[in-house]
Design a protein around this nucleic acid. Sequence first.
DNA 1: CAGGTTCAGTGATAGCCTCTAACTAAATCT
DNA 2: AGATTTAGTTAGAGGCTATCACTGAACCTG
Lengths: 220, 220
Amino acid sequence: MAEETPRERYRAQVREEIKRHAREQIATAGASALSLNAIAKQMGLSGPALYRYYAGRDELITALVRDAYRSLADTLAVGAGGGADLPALAHALRLWALADPQRYFLVYGTPVPGYHAPEDTTAISAEIMTILLDACAAALAGQAPGQEPAPLAAHLADHRDWTFGNPAPPEALHLFLTLWTRLHGVLSLELAGHFAGMGFDAARLYEAEVADLLAPSPRG
Amino acid sequence: MAEETPRERYRAQVREEIKRHAREQIATAGASALSLNAIAKQMGLSGPALYRYYAGRDELITALVRDAYRSLADTLAVGAGGGADLPALAHALRLWALADPQRYFLVYGTPVPGYHAPEDTTAISAEIMTILLDACAAALAGQAPGQEPAPLAAHLADHRDWTFGNPAPPEALHLFLTLWTRLHGVLSLELAGHFAGMGFDAARLYEAEVADLLAPSPRG
DNA sequence: CAGGTTCAGTGATAGCCTCTAACTAAATCT
DNA sequence: AGATTTAGTTAGAGGCTATCACTGAACCTG
């Protein structure tokens, strides 16, 4: 099947080891501090050797970004577990983010202005959206049957190309976007340390946001 | 008053010009691409000259971060305009962020693991929180009078050291945190380009989030 | 206004980094 | 066994941050 020659095996193995060291480096000092040279030294190689395996720093980072997307998609797919349980998905997302904040930032962090993500990462991104969108549609199933959608939901239904034919109702599109932005809002501020010293439990805020997404509590 | 010698005047002027070039560079290529050397060349100076004005790259970036915080605090103070109108504040925040995304990321973007913000930036951060928290308290004034706070609000009231004695009610603390995280959630994903190609109008999503904060719309 | 002091800016240098080029040596294929 | 591919090397160009010793001009003081 795979028809893997020994050379290809070795190549894949070394590429994996390079990524292992890179992940370690990023986790402790951030993506901007990643150094091919330092990785080479750690592996007992001399600098330029790594260019046999990755065309440059950018390509290595791109590979790590792809892996991060892949890991998140798989984690959510497991978290969904067929049931498409929104709180379970949200919880899986949070655990994934807390397990390696820098990996989360690799996916959802500050972008480099010049950089354009390759096609396949956007494909995985679509996969992630699909999982969440399906869960949103399921969470709304049976509710608000056939009513006229709210203005924003209608607007979203008019621009749903990104769902790639997903038959989710307009309200599900809205729910998905609020789910995404709200969870990201709590997670990114928490991981960035902006809650540091504030004393409260970010997990409870996160849970409250999840609960509110499913059953908004009237405040006024 | 200021007792400014010509030398001090010149120093301040050059420091300002360095920051001007730095801002320009960051706006077009991100903070990680900031180069003291390049700034020096642009100013017709030779590399090491800049070290007379900033002890190093970190100190320059820190100055830019402080300026960004200051700018945001001032913008919100004007946006509040005494009235403490939450939608107006949210709108001012969005305009500020859109005007210079990289400046927004300087404040709320991916943190560098090693870096610790100096004391005065956290002071400005507290100032920003105060403006928003006051607006939240005002928005809730007269509503839900004297009822028992929800579990999360009670938890927040138990950990309110960060409010520095602000007498906002527990519900206002909760409203502030959701305001902060939700607006940041939409803004950061939008500015990071994660909505690119999705076609919908992020401004409408943002407005809907603001509206929902003030009058949650029941979905179930 | 003369003399000493302070300070902006310089070139040289060390030590990182990315990435290219030419070469060696080993593994693989025919 | 010989030809080819390829992993890894050293050398080096060009960028960066940052330090150091030095020059020359601006400034303050007597």
